[in-house]
Design a binder for these strands. Structure first.
Lengths: 248, 248
DNA sequence: CAAATAACTTGACTTAGATCAAGGTCGTTT
DNA sequence: AAACGACCTTGATCTAAGTCAAGTTATTTG
């Protein structure tokens, strides 16, 4: 069983939804009527398929309901860097812009709750609540992009891997207690996808993951499932401040 | 003479200001009266001085009027990564959050137009126009953070340097014509600051800059002034798509 | 269920950039 | 104008991560 993902506080999902920890689109059940009248549709993208390419015309925006998608950028010679990891409740697309700036690709099967862009933009004008949420989401994304920049610019390969594992574990609600051992979660990313996230090669990713295994910090199971055997130790391998949480 | 900086389209500055290309705070001259009633003050920070440290209580938000500031993150062992370069019109601080998430430091002398955070947050609620601008600014920042991630994760040292030079040249309005030669601008950053921006060491920065000089692509003048002798060539050294501009 | 394919591991070797260590320039201070 | 300090350059050496090249293990498909 896959643990339910952590919904970001300012997501579009679950705004008024009674089911607090499942990813159901905003306004699906009740609340602002206008939203209901808008063209809204769910679409499933199979694992590995493109959702949109950089430069394509963007007809919709939306949010991830289930699955994992990624936002990435490609250089002419094929070098690729992931610039966003999209988990349930994350927003896709930029209101007010008609062309995509980045590639979006489904990593696992993805269900997207889509809104036509134009009517969504109109709603954004009309519903202050929605605009506030969008601002909060953008600022949260910006903060995590900036932490990611520290990772890319300054961390060692091992620190990068440890950081990624912890980010994914946390977003999957797998971590109840930071001192807990045997935290389990689905990685859902291939070695190549991880290397694109971390600015490494897939060989380096493989070596570092196996080094963590050899040091008895994690164990690897079938189907890209990870068991963290020593969470505190994994945390200390990230290079991050121990008490990053004191910032309210 | 220093060229006037490029104001981002969605900045708080110059919203209705008749002087289009000087950095004057929003509403300084006219427009929304509420803004005038708010506690607003200008403060000058000398080059090299801290504006705020990560974790400090944030009493104000504001925007850069003149000068260059930087946003950075520090690891316990002293590794530092710049995560934002703040030029005139850029916003500092996060409304709705009481503690700073990153260090902010003046690189050159900086004049900041500051607003007390609480009343600013109230204004943000009341003036839709302002909220829209904040959203636009956040999304622009997010886009540039993501491009920066590609730079940090995948570019070579030479590509990083070329990219930085072009970003700074563009933001200073120094580039009228992309094919133009003899584009001149103030770098305003020490080798160390550049190395923190690019995820390199200062020695590597120095070597790469001198390599560009040796290849007759740039020339270095007194007072950190740079002359680009072959702009097209510099552009081609960034590794970026030639025609990134087709996205409207 | 076997064959095919995709994903992962591991080893040997290379290299871009880091590190360590002097010196050299420039601008400011007395 | 000498002396100081901050900034920059350059060389020699080291090393973390990249590259190339087989193999091995999972997962999917016919």
């Amino acid at each position: 069983m896959i643990s339910p993902p952590v919904l970001k506080p300012a997501s579009l999902n679950c705004i008024d939804c009674p089911i607090k920890h499942r990813a159901v689109c905003a306004y699906c059940e009740k609340s602002e009527m206008a939203m209901l009248e808008m063209m809204k549709s769910y679409k499933t993208y199979p694992a590995g398929s493109p959702i949109i390419f950089a430069g394509d015309r963007m007809k919709f925006v939306g949010s991830v309901v289930t699955g994992v998608a990624r936002l990435s950028q490609t250089m002419e010679d094929g070098r690729r860097q992931m610039v966003g990891l999209l988990l349930p409740s994350d927003f896709v697309g930029r209101p007010g812009r008609s062309y995509a700036a980045f590639d979006v690709e489904a990593t696992t099967d993805v269900i997207l709750c889509r809104f036509e862009r134009k009517p969504f933009e109109k709603l954004l004008k009309d519903i202050p609540h929605l605009r506030e949420r969008m601002l909060e989401m953008a600022l949260d994304e910006l903060d995590s992009a900036r932490e990611w920049m520290l990772l890319l610019g300054r961390k060692t390969a091992r620190e990068k891997i440890a950081s990624l594992l912890i980010i994914i574990a946390r977003r999957q609600n797998a971590v109840q207690d930071e001192t807990h051992t045997d935290v389990q979660f689905d990685l859902s990313l291939t070695r190549e996808a991880m290397s694109e996230y971390l600015g490494l090669t897939l060989e380096t990713v493989s070596r570092q993951i196996n080094a963590l295994k050899k040091d008895n910090i994690i164990a690897l199971e079938k189907k890209r499932r990870v068991v963290v055997k020593d969470f505190a130790r994994l945390l200390s391998e990230t290079g991050d401040d121990e008490d990053g949480g004191f910032l309210v």
